[in-house]
Design a protein around this nucleic acid. Sequence first.
DNA 1: GCAAGGTC
Length: 616
Amino acid sequence: MKVIIAEKPSVAREIAKVFGANTKKDGYIEGKGYTFTWAFGHLLQLAPPQEYGYYRWSVQNLPMLPQKFKLSVRKTKTKDGMVDDPSAVKQLNTIKTLFEEASEIIVATDAGREGELIFRYIYYYLKCKKPFKRLWISSQTDEAIKDGFRNLKPGSDYDTLFNSAHCRSQSDWLVGMNATQALSLASGTRSVLSLGRVQTPTLAMICSRYLENKNFVPQIYYQVAIQVDKNGTAFRAISVDSYKTKADAEGVVNAVEDVASGYAQGGNILSVEAKPRKEPPPLLHDLSSLQQEANKRRGFTADYTLSLLQNLYEGKLVTYPRTGSRYIGDDVFATVPSLISKFTDHSNFGKQATFLGTTKLNKRSVNAKKVTDHHAILPTGETPRQLTPDQQTIYDMVAGRMLEAFHQDCIKEITKIAVQSGAKFMASGTVINTAGWRAVFNDKDEEKKDEENASLPKVEPGEQLPITNKAVLEKQTKPKPMYNEASLLKALETAGKEIEDEELRYAMKDSGLGTPATRAAIIETLIKRDYIKREKKNLLPTEVGLSVYGVVKNQQIAQAELTGNWEKRLEEIRSGASVASFQQEIQQYTRTITTEMLKAGASLRPPKAATDAVKA
DNA sequence: GCAAGGTC
């Protein structure tokens, strides 16, 4: 019997369906001589410190450098503390039994570093010796699955990928566990002051932006606005120059030849420029872009959006949610027309779905090379029933984005009019000629914000028009805004883009900080540690967060570069480089950061603890 | 009591 193991039940079900296997058992599916089982993500993790004899938090134990790492069942929190997650224990037992009966194992965990780790940890934990082959596919259409099974790879082809995954895992443990204990112990408080490769740079970003914003000194400057009239249609133009003092601006405003000053037609049209601009549709959503959009439009937290999506996914209404790709392959694209046709009766965008049925689809979101472990989020075509209002919101964002992504370009005309009257003034306006993809949601709000003159009247160069109003505008330079969940998610995705070292920047180009699946959890961790808090839509550091930032801000652990550096080394390991030298470096860094935190953490001691320390 | 990674 061959056993196929997937990363999650949904994938195992898809594969079983292609084989025509449909005998459902507890924890697996049987049929056609195969058994299809699954994990629930990581069932196993690197064992916590106490399993190496580091029973209590103590400076004497630091740094904790286990000779050999152990694996233990994923833990879950109960009222009696951390216990083995019962669902993981049960599934592991199922897998164990199936592996014992197997002649061969086919590994169908996600095609990536963590997918490899999920399987190998299970395989080694169960001390399994059965031969295994690797299924390597990035979409779950019937064709992709069949094709993948015709091209099964030897399991050993992925040994170096496992090595890089294992190194990632161990390095995060070593640096995170040790730095956390060191800082917490040194601070003398009883609270946990956690540090890690991802959470600490994230905290640093929030704190540094907060301080930059708070210490920003706004500069006041002035501009002059005039109102020009063309046959009863007024438009506003702003001085091209800005002025340092109010007096300068008043000088300019006084020179404007407006009607009130006795000039019937004092506005001289210098030039009119009208340029058409094509605006291609947005790409399909990945998790992060959807979280950002839901936060902007509805104020949903990243965590809440993920949980709504998970509900929809479990209800088989949307495809896999924790994807980092905004593209689909040609195989999935082939199913898009029929997916779109399911929305022709939709109350909001039925009309656009019907229209798309009659036209050539835009293929901007179709690129198999940019599909990684999973493709972009799509509706499945199943009919939703009884969604909560928030679930409906998210579902509509997924479905609506699909319609947008395959729709036509939006064609705009951007008009700029230059007016001379004492000084030079400019008016600009945007007119949408063909809505294209923008017809789907028909949201005008977003654009109106920056385009005050949505449309401008037709004028010709050389025309002399009356100026019906004029005023001095007082303006201020603005600081970069504080982070909110949307802008932070974006920043995490693109973290590393500004790294100077080209190699490190390259190593991070496809990753950023954290992964789509973990970014929401990182934000929640920082909140749980009392490092940051939500205030209205913003994420602001607390006193604790700022003082931890003060201690670590110049350390490597607070820089996105650390991830870039690791990614570069991990990629080298994946292509065959030695594991030992990277492990040596990590051990050395663990010693360094532990010493540093034990020293620097003392500055976090509360006044009483500090006095006690002096007495002692 | 602690990381980051995955998922119900």
